[in-house]
């Protein structure tokens, strides 16, 4: 599904290059449920951006759904994200001026789908997250938990192969956080969608079947590899 080899990503900070990723190799298979943890500044967000085709690596190879990111144009990357990837953000990232159903339908807009078809799929997605009664509410008329469920509906409306969730419970209380984690778990278990969860909370990471720890731009631990590279 996703294959990364020797990923490096450096940022220019003044005159010096700061390495956010320094040689990361990992693969995410279809149907995986991966938690990426690590202290802030460890590079886990950068890793998510590169694996999610939002960003390009400075060096190394990323293959998403069989396509080499380095060979794709910006437009191709946008289409790749649209077709294969769903995103859930900590801050929900909903458009305040439009209704829940329009927010959910937004990815389909860039697929060239007709309005009626978009709405139909968006309504189905909102039904899946238990918000069938909130279709025409604006984000500010919804609770935080409901907003994040709208965001999850938006991530799954395009029928993605992988969903990236960046601190999805970061702005929620425990009860709503559990609700969101349950939805993500169901998405993985029932629909076979791979989930890549970025979090710094161990409780949340525990929902995943595979744990990856990032430290200083390198993988410090990968439960699937069954080894600790730092110890080797």
């Amino acid at each position: 599904m996703i294959e990364a080899v020797d990923l490096e990503r450096t940022y220019k900070l003044g005159d010096s290059d700061v390495g956010a990723l320094r040689g990361v190799s990992l693969s995410v298979a279809a149907g995986d449920y991966v938690a990426i943890t690590g202290p802030s500044g460890s590079g886990k967000s950068t890793l998510m951006h590169v694996l999610g085709a939002l960003d390009r690596p400075t060096a190394g190879l990323v293959r998403i759904d069989g396509r080499d990111v380095n060979t794709l144009s910006d437009g191709d990357l946008a289409e790749l994200r649209n077709a294969t990837i769903g995103f859930v953000f900590q801050s929900f990232a909903l458009l305040a001026r439009t209704s829940a159903v329009d927010n959910v339908a937004m990815p389909l807009l860039y697929r060239g789908m007709r309005k009626s078809a978009r709405r139909k799929l968006a309504v189905e997605a909102l039904e899946k997250v238990g918000l069938a009664h909130r279709l025409d509410h604006r984000p500010n008329q919804l609770s935080g938990g409901e907003q994040q469920r709208v965001a999850i509906a938006r991530a799954l409306v395009g029928d993605p192969k992988v969903v990236f969730a960046d601190e999805p419970t970061g702005n929620l209380d425990t009860r709503n956080g559990e609700e969101v984690m349950k939805l993500l778990g169901a998405l993985n278990a029932d629909a076979g969608v791979a989930i890549v969860l970025v979090t710094h909370e161990p409780d949340i990471a525990a929902h995943a079947s595979r744990q990856i720890q990032i430290r200083d731009g390198r993988i410090a631990f990968d439960s699937a590899a069954g080894r600790d590279p730092a110890a080797a």
Partner: peptide, 12 residues
């Protein structure tokens, strides 16, 4: 940023 993440191309 959101629109681009969700698949909007530059021309969109």
């Amino acid at each position: 940023g959101l629109r681009k993440a969700l698949g909007a191309r530059q021309r969109d």
